[in-house]
Design a protein around this nucleic acid. Structure first.
Lengths: 196, 196
DNA sequence: CGGCTGATGTCAGTAACTGACATCACAGTA
DNA sequence: TACTGTGATGTCAGTTACTGACATCAGCCG
């Protein structure tokens, strides 16, 4: 199979299958490569490490989010622009591969600390991207950093609720719900004894 | 040195030294063990992996934060309780080891993707702890999850600014600043075209 | 003195990753 | 058609993080 096309895709597919069949840590890179009809060395030419193969689409998602933040209407507030970014991500996740795929993938990730760490890293990169895009829209510090983190936190929580069940409200809906909750909970005028 | 006391402490010290001298990835576990007068195997009895030795104090910090959230006055709002948690963490970091130590440590972590991932994992655990503590105070979902994430995001950003320079405003001050910024930026009544 | 316990050492093994170099399919190009 | 360069792949040897099984040693308790 050395010269069959789409080696990278074959590796991704083989990895997903094996991770589902025997779990991430009971799968070796050699096994993935073998199922894809390739060698271990070739695996590492396509993916930096054993984790990365599950996050291949991350860069594209990030570009999408950053582009959405950058192209939000000039009249939009910083929060509005940040939300536009994660809404773009949400839309893509719902349409491109669907909830079913997201669930399987998330089950694999949740089962392995290594993979959870890598996922956090990807989300942190996304937050940094949103923050940077906000800065280019003129937002100052620490506001831009905060909104990047907050937007991604909302995305993350909505996503977790979304994949937790196979039906129910859509990702976008859950994100709006979380956003409303955030605004309610951070509104000024808390009871006495809280702030200075 | 086999029976010298405080093997764990010696390992921690040796690791910090070596990571600073030659960098994290040019340091082997065998070298750390050797400098501490122990063997590689013993290293792994004290620390789960090569990264963990830099995060040994993490569990204690987390307990402190969770305890502070839980013991916030009953009159405090959820946001107030979450903030009390990270303020406790900030106070400890400022007093216990100081900004100097935090800077050195952060420089090491920033230089290695592996270590950054591990740090994100620790912060995520802290967020989960805050969220859980808020739930036990009666907060609902998704509010508790959101506030846990948001509080830790504020902590993180303030911490980054704090270690970025060797003098300037204190951690607590930076946290309050970030919190104010968050409240200003998420306040309702954005300009038209932002929310539905 | 002797046995128990916990911390450490020793050894062998697995698997992730890397660098150096060889090989093969294919595309141009003379 | 033969030649050549290029990019993807294979092969091989090596390093290092980590693990399991078993041996050893210091100190404590009876």
């Amino acid at each position: 199979m050395r010269w069959e096309p789409n080696a990278r895709g074959r590796l991704e597919r083989a990895a997903m299958e094996l991770y589902r069949e025997r779990g991430y840590d009971h799968t070796t890179v050699a096994q993935i490569a073998e199922r894809a009809g390739l060698t271990e060395r070739t695996f590492f030419r396509h993916f930096a490490d054993k984790r990365e193969i599950l996050f291949a689409g991350g860069a594209e998602l990030q570009r999408l989010v950053v582009a959405a933040v950058a192209s939000a209407p000039a009249s939009a507030s910083p929060l509005g622009a940040a939300v536009a970014g994660i809404e773009a991500a949400g839309t893509m996740l719902e349409e491109r591969r669907g909830r079913r795929f997201a669930r399987q993938r998330q089950r694999i990730i949740a089962a392995s600390p290594e993979l959870r760490e890598r996922e956090l890293h990807k989300l942190a990169a996304m937050a940094a991207g949103v923050s940077e895009a906000l800065r280019e829209r003129g937002a100052g510090e620490p506001g831009a950093s905060i909104l990047g983190e907050v937007a991604v936190a909302i995305f993350r929580i909505a996503f977790e609720r979304w994949v937790a069940e196979s039906s129910g409200p859509g990702l976008l809906e859950l994100m709006r719900e979380s956003l409303d909750e955030l605004q309610a909970l951070t509104a000024q005028g808390q009871p006495a004894g809280v702030r200075a």
